[in-house]
Amino acid sequence: MFSYKSLAGLFMTLSLAAANIDTPSGADMCESQGEGSCQFATFDITDNTGGICSTALTRQAVIYDHACNQIGWSSDFFNEGDSIDSQLPYTVSIINEDGGQTADCRMKYTISYSDGTYGYGMPSNGAWNSCDAESGKACSWYRTAFPCPGF
């Protein structure tokens, strides 16, 4: 039986397969989780003039399912208050970003999904570190898990 919802799901799946985000070397964006656990992950590339982050050049986020398949992503830039679409039934919203004005430029995020809050400063906290960037730029990655029943 044909339905618009199944057609929309097929379109999202085909779109995701065609446009996976290419992440920087050293960005540990996903660590396989058990079923029902997804991950929000991001990398930031900034102008690192004088050892302090200044201008964000790229900021992208990816939503992964429990097997580290990309099921959603942001545009080239996102900010606090933005939502990220995915194959999940709800959007993932960026409710806080922390860090960035340090020598290592490491950003950390707090997100909301469904009826919960996850990430930096929460019990789930997440993981973050630096990644590879060309000279004069800094790269950092961040990831946190959140429950997503059915994925």
Score class of each variant (00 low, 15 high):
residue 63 I to H: 02
residue 48 N to C: 10
residue 78 F to W: 07
residue 65 D to T: 03
residue 144 T to R: 08
residue 124 S to Y: 00
residue 59 R to N: 06
residue 118 Y to S: 00
residue 85 D to I: 07
residue 60 Q to L: 06
residue 86 S to Q: 00
residue 134 E to Y: 07
residue 105 C to F: 07
residue 142 Y to W: 08
residue 12 M to G: 02
residue 27 A to E: 02
residue 142 Y to N: 09
residue 68 C to V: 06
residue 136 G to W: 01
residue 1 M to E: 08
residue 88 L to K: 04
residue 84 I to V: 00
residue 84 I to Y: 03
residue 147 P to T: 08
residue 113 Y to L: 08
residue 13 T to G: 08
residue 31 E to M: 11
residue 150 G to C: 06
residue 10 L to C: 03
residue 47 D to E: 15
residue 140 S to H: 06
residue 98 D to K: 08
residue 102 T to W: 14
residue 13 T to S: 14
residue 61 A to D: 01
residue 40 F to Y: 12
residue 5 K to W: 11
residue 136 G to H: 00
residue 145 A to P: 07
residue 69 N to S: 14
residue 131 C to V: 03
residue 63 I to F: 02
residue 88 L to V: 04
residue 118 Y to I: 00
residue 150 G to A: 07
residue 10 L to D: 09
residue 83 S to T: 06
residue 37 S to I: 09
residue 61 A to P: 00
residue 109 Y to H: 05
residue 3 S to N: 04
residue 109 Y to K: 03
residue 31 E to K: 15
residue 127 A to R: 09
residue 44 D to M: 11
residue 3 S to M: 05
residue 125 N to A: 12
residue 69 N to P: 09
residue 120 Y to K: 02
residue 25 S to V: 04
residue 101 Q to Y: 15
residue 118 Y to L: 00
residue 145 A to L: 08
residue 15 S to V: 04
residue 7 L to T: 00
residue 76 D to I: 11
residue 88 L to D: 01
residue 151 F to G: 01
residue 146 F to S: 06
residue 34 G to S: 06
